[in-house]
Nucleic acid binder design. Sequence first.
DNA 1: TCTGGGGTCCTAGGACCC
DNA 2: TCTGGGGTCCTAGGACCC
Length: 419
Amino acid sequence: MYGLCDCNNFFASCERLFRPDLEGRPVVVLSNNDGCIIARSNEAKALGIGMGQPLYQVQQLIEQRRVTLFSANFALYGDISRRVMATLRSLVPNTEVYSIDEAFFDLHGIEEPLDDYGRQISRTIRRNTGIPVSIGIAPTKTLAKIASKLAKQYPKLEGCCYMHRPQDIEKVLTTFPLRDVWGIGRRYGKLFDGMGIRTARQFVQLPQEWVHARMGITGLRTWNELQGLECIAFEQMPPHKQQITVSRSFPKEIHTHEELDHIIAEFAAMCAEKLRAQHSVCREVIAYIYTNRHREDQPQRYESGLATLAEPSGSTIEIVKQARSVLQQIYRSGFGYKKAGVTLSEILPTSHVQGSLFDPVDRQKQQRLMETMDKVNRTYGKGKVIIAAQGTQPFRMNREHLSPRYTTDWNELPVVKAD
DNA sequence: TCTGGGGTCCTAGGACCC
DNA sequence: TCTGGGGTCCTAGGACCC
């Protein structure tokens, strides 16, 4: 049996932790630049506010119904996530952290009754972190996902749904919407809607050959998993990232090379920091710039370019240099740029790098420099030491509704007043 | 006017190797 | 003129996830 622990309305729940006055009230969290809705409390969902909806489309509703807005505060969510995962780890033998708000856990060898066990986990996480979670337990990960959704849906389950008897599973699949199944996205959802296949049970009754031919091996896995046949492995150690990206939309369109150059340098530096955090180096640096795709009245440009490093590196200096040279090649004036990004690929562990006889760079010296820089920035705060190419003004997003970094910045700790 | 960010895996076809 | 069998690597595109 596998369990899935899923935090309810995670970002909204994090914001409410420090704002108990918002309990029972509609809360939404916005994407970068306060553009789209990326999380909603149950009350906000009930108002019909959609996931991913642009803010301007629901502005009126938000004012009328006095919905509280928050700008995305990933420093806070990341920290709360670590606490939730740490609590889960203390309760179960093996976990696989799947996303910022979800983790699978392995229940092999755990004794019945597993539903009591799951409820205990749910209660403990709520008590220790303040975050409400839903637990699903079932023979495969895909079924555990479904079970956790049921746990969320039915309060009488008290936070855990244990789904294991074949007749129970079949009963659930008979009504469970196919488009809500893990692995069935928008495209397939539409396809099956058109075929009149709406429930997980109907999908499972399709012939195996048809599923394989139409959906490939991944679709077949989902088909099998729904029938209790384990096809998606439990992975305790998350593999290293094969690709690292930092990209942002800008609050306003940017028209000059100079401004983009600073931004690309900063994104490249952020990528390099992430790269070193997983003890890796990379061989390729990709930079890209986009115009505003929503402005059909303006000329569009979508350009990217790639630079290959002579030797794999994790040095901010080298990665920034390559990213800037790519920008130099792809930049054209006369466009209003709305988004830019940097991606590192061809990533390998630092330990696998072989030195080159003709390497002009002193690798050890560079590495010591980077270690020192990371240490300073960890100790004294992000961005204390940067590359000059980043310019003096750090990249700013629109974040009008930002909550304090209650748990990750000494200057923003919540204060309990005595008077 | 305003529309997010960061990932993964699979497949098919072409180029190339022995 | 006839023309096998077994591979790898790369890329673009399509699907999915949170």
